[in-house]
């Protein structure tokens, strides 16, 4: 018996994209928690990048202002000390975000049970189902993470300008902010993929006979 042809990647991408586009608001809700968590991460990280830039640029002026603004400076007063509390909050927000994504994706899988069963009846392999879900999550993750990262960084920059005055704009550390945004995008996309793994496996393991069931 001959083996099934593997569906080309372009075709899977097209199907995933179509599914996202048609269910736009549904996907938006799934992505929202990711946008918020990544924005938070990006905001915190950009904030400390900016503080570092201000210290490096004009330490004498900004040291006191930074302390007043609540930043923890290291003992020599020349760099920003990372606060453990802050790291924990960021970590927790990302954790909550992943749980949220798993939850939303599981919902989406059970909404599409019949669709998945039908695809399997039509000859889809388990791995095709997994692939569709992973591609959808990657697209959602990328879009959500880019939005969140830019939004968070922008908010951090505006907050810094308001707090330290427009003069601070001269000391903004653009390369560091850029790196932070890229890192936040990568982390966000990764979280989205992490969140979809279990739901995608649930979907792929479903028996095609489910598609026959009348009650949904």
């Amino acid at each position: 018996m001959r083996r099934l042809v593997i569906v080309p990647f372009r075709k899977s991408l097209q199907m995933a994209w179509q599914s996202l586009r048609v269910r736009f608001f549904r996907s938006l809700v799934t992505t929202m928690s990711l946008v918020l968590a990544v924005a938070f991460l990006s905001f915190i990280q950009t904030g400390s990048d900016i503080a570092g830039g201000l210290l490096a640029g004009d330490g004498a002026t900004y040291q006191q202002l930074l302390l007043q603004a609540g930043y923890d400076l290291s003992t020599d007063g020349n760099s920003i000390g990372g606060s453990a509390k802050q790291r924990w909050i960021v970590f927790l927000s990302l954790l909550v975000c992943v749980v949220g994504i798993i939850n939303a994706q599981l919902m989406s899988v059970s909404e599409r049970f019949r669709e998945i069963g039908t695809l399997k009846c039509l000859g889809a392999l388990d791995r095709f189902i997994v692939r569709i879900f992973v591609i959808e999550a990657a697209l959602q993750g990328l879009a959500g993470a880019v939005t969140g990262a830019l939004f968070g960084a922008l908010a951090a920059i505006l907050a810094a300008l308001v707090r330290f005055g427009l003069a601070a704009a001269a000391h903004l550390p653009w390369p560091e902010i850029g790196t932070t945004i890229l890192a936040a995008v990568a982390i966000g996309t990764l979280l989205s993929l992490l969140g979809v793994l279990y739901p995608a496996l649930v979907a792929a393991r479903m028996e095609p006979v489910e598609a026959m069931r009348v009650e949904q």
Binding site: M1, R2, R3, L4, Q18, S19, V22, R23, R114, E115, G117, T118, L119, K120, C121, L122, G123, A124, L125, D126, P208, A211, M212, V214
Partner: peptide, 28 residues
């Protein structure tokens, strides 16, 4: 006797399914 690939092949080429609830893919 068929493995997962062969079953998928069978479902794809040999059998056409029609369901009571139509089961068209709604987004397509």
């Amino acid at each position: 006797q068929l493995d997962a690939y062969e079953l998928a092949w069978l479902r794809c080429r040999k059998i056409g399914y029609i369901f009571q609830t139509f089961n068209l893919i709604p987004v397509m």
